[in-house]
Design a protein around this nucleic acid. Structure first.
Lengths: 300, 300
DNA sequence: GTAATAGTGTCTTTCAGACAGTATGAC
DNA sequence: GTCATACTGTCTGAAAGACACTATTAC
């Protein structure tokens, strides 16, 4: 049973997310050819669970206080790590999503916060259809798909990218990245013919896409946005944070009513002066957890 | 880097699900002290991806045609496998959910189909509140929680089990199992004081609970029920299948309208004779994938 | 006819989205 | 006063759930 040739190295990859102004940021390790996610081996003697290993990894590499932590997916494709191609063992990684609160200091040695839309620019639709999308990504997808007579592929592209009038689903981040990968539209592809967005090391951009998709899906039925906000915030701040994560604009007055009616927040009575009328400060109301089935920010 | 003491064995555990009459069944390997899920080591030389390894595992152990397959979660807690306590390496498993079509033959050597509610009987609420729930599980949970002065635990129990008038969330299968585990209500617990439901080997019941929760969540926005049904079916059959998975009754006429209006099925024109008025046969309408954002069976 | 299941029509409530308009600060 | 942002009220249409009722078979 030992030495039976099943050479597998199990590791942890962490997508650590925070907000700064109105940009969602992901923690990257710099210094290589391309930025990469904080990662490390899983050492069973040291960590009782995978989640504890992920926590330790983040604390040791970044000195950050982790709030919310969630297992994402386990990645094990052959050659996902370049070292395997050079004869190394299979590198299997358990991906984790971590949210850290507002005002997180940029880590010291070689780590940096980067706007996640730098890696996946077509996911930012806040300025009313990102210019890159309409001008470059969508034409590329449409043309490349049309060149291959593959009905299933064409349907996937139609759904993922909202071609031919289909609706844009902002959760389908991974589906879009995978399609671009298959269509040679990202630098990591086997035969890249275009290179939209900044590349990451290995399959880390795929892991990032998984994380964003999960986060976008989850804010709708779980109150995790508040992990990224200070304890007290205005409804506008909450709205802009949600918009930044979701990559889309939300109608202000409706957002306000939606959020207030669900009882997910409560006013603190205090106000904050802004360039206009001062805004009331709100805090997360933890009682919703007991009152509602799926307390989240109801956006479509 | 080799031989650095990080002894990890990576394996695959599969939750293979099919329907029989109106009971959801899970494939188990018999012969040990308790039934267990089909499992096997991940051999990187053999399988290019984890998903292919899961497919191979199921085909080899059960000779079944797998339709839908989805990665669930990766389990790596210390001592999750009894062999580790005896000095063995850490056993980390990637769990997969597989759906196989109607009429799947029971595998040959030592495998059996079992009603999944045998393992998690409190999850079946179709007969209007399972007798076991009200009479045994809920009182046990309420009393055990009350005995521990732990507000966070009490809140979790309230939400998971719908205590004090909170709503029952049928997706929260894993949360309920984990609470029962922590409260000593299942045989696998460290200090069992009750033993609701039939136990499985190791943490396989937790993996099963993860699978059921995922399936219940996913039928609402993905047309995966049809993987468990024959190509043509009556709306009553569809309804009873959904009810069996969700563990709850659905109002017939509303279900009918809901399903027909979304365009997720279409009539075949044929009819099937039943003990009453003959029912029209329907088939899954794959065009919905392109038309709707989240085509599923909208149940609450 | 009865029993049993299939299927239709309608009413109510809830909620998402659009939009017009008001409030309160800085200057 | 203007500008900018915060906030409120109302209308509309979609959809979920309750429920009364009709249809078609076997016997």
């Amino acid at each position: 049973m030992e030495g039976d040739g099943t050479a597998v190295r199990l590791g942890i990859d962490a997508v650590v997310v925070s907000m700064h102004d109105e940009t969602p940021r992901v923690l990257t390790v710099e210094g290589g050819a391309a930025p990469r996610l904080p990662a490390g081996p899983f050492v069973p003697e040291r960590d009782r669970t995978l989640e504890l290993a992920a926590r330790r990894l983040i604390v040791e590499q970044t000195a950050l206080m982790v709030g919310y932590l969630e297992q994402l997916y386990t990645f094990g494709d052959r050659y996902r790590d370049p070292r395997e191609a050079a004869g190394g063992p299979r590198m299997v990684s358990v991906g984790y999503l971590a949210l850290v609160g507002a005002g997180a200091a940029a880590g010291s040695g070689g780590v940096a916060w980067r706007d996640w839309y730098g890696f996946l620019p077509w996911e930012d639709d806040r300025a009313g259809r990102a210019p890159l999308l309409d001008a470059a990504v969508l034409p590329y997808v449409a043309q490349t798909v049309a060149a291959q007579a593959d009905a299933a592929l064409a349907l996937r592209a139609r759904i993922a990218f909202g071609l031919d009038g289909a609706a844009w689903n902002n959760d389908a981040v991974l589906e879009r990245y995978e399609l671009l990968f298959e269509l040679g539209g990202v630098a990591e592809a086997r035969q890249p013919r275009a290179a939209f967005g900044a590349p990451m090391d290995g399959d880390h951009r795929r892991i990032l896409a998984t994380a964003i998709g999960r986060l976008r899906g989850k804010i709708k039925y779980r109150p995790i946005v508040f992990e990224l906000l200070p304890p007290a915030f205005t409804l506008s701040e909450l709205q802009r944070t949600v918009e930044a994560l979701a990559g889309m604009r939300i109608h202000g007055p409706n957002f306000r009513r939606l959020v207030e009616d669900t009882g997910i927040v409560e006013g603190t009575g205090e106000r904050r002066s802004t360039p206009g009328r001062p805004a009331e400060l709100f805090r997360f109301r933890s009682d919703v957890l007991a009152e509602r089935q799926d307390p989240g920010i109801g956006i479509r």
